[in-house]
Amino acid sequence: MAGNGISGLAQELASKRLDKVYAVEHALLGEYTPDGYTAALEALVRQVNPSCVLFPHTYQVRDFVPKLATRLSRVLVSDVIRVRVEDGALVFVRLLFQGKLNGDMRVSGPAPHLVSIQAGAYRAENVQTGSAVVETVTPALTPDQIRSKPHPPFRESSRAVDLTAAELIVSVGRGIKEKENIPIVEELARALGAELAASRPICDNGWLPMERQVGSSGQTVAPKLYLAVGISGAIQHLVGMKGAKTIVAINKDSNAPIFEVADIGVVGDLFEVVPALVEEIRKAKS
């Protein structure tokens, strides 16, 4: 764990079943910078010389761990969903092609091996309690090592749409093809009494406002029903909605990764299925 004034967090971590906790503390680590974190962790890894260093695959880790790996002349295996041992060697499973395929990666060369693990790949609550020793490490950092100057984090104007509270969500993806087709799913949301949401590309294109985005860079939702229309199911989207109670997916590609998480899957052309569905919902409600 790296930062400044983190002894409380380090103690909390020490209450898990771990052999040891290293608290890498320095005033220059109070604000995250890739230069600061890379230098601090490089020193720790060289000192401890572990066989494997696991990281959570967060935005921050994506920002500096590839740099750290390069500094150590290693390759980071990123965004891993499973680790297994085969014939005494570690095998890391990753998603390829936006989740259409999986890949088993093997690493060679000397330790340490650096790996980042996808959020949700393992269950955090399964970590058992214990009591570990905390060793505080103070890296030799100087201000001139840090080239970037971060400013305080901020949020854009408060969200007008709170999707997290929605019971029912109709969400639209690339399959809708063009902005002019958005009313087709708006109609479905209206018929169901659902909030309308979208995957990132729809918001990137400006077809719906950013505040309606579900996924790692948008909102994380857990409605009773999540109806995904024309969403292929890239992992960045799935992390934002896989907590939904029931997931229904409409997609023309039966191999789309969204069907991996769907409870009910409709393989078909959304431009035919959605209008028919609107009609049936209206009938059922009348």
């Binding site: 290693r74 390759v75 295996v77 095998v91 998603l95 390829l96 989740g99 259409k100 395929l101 999986n102 890949g103 088993d104 990666m105 093997r106 690493v107 060679s108 060369g109 191999n255 990764p257 069907f259 991996e260 998480v261 769907a262 409870d263």
Partner: peptide
Amino acid sequence: AQAVIDRIYVPQKSK
């Protein structure tokens, strides 16, 4: 290369 793809495959459905 230190990290290479050993095998690619269609993911098994878990749900």
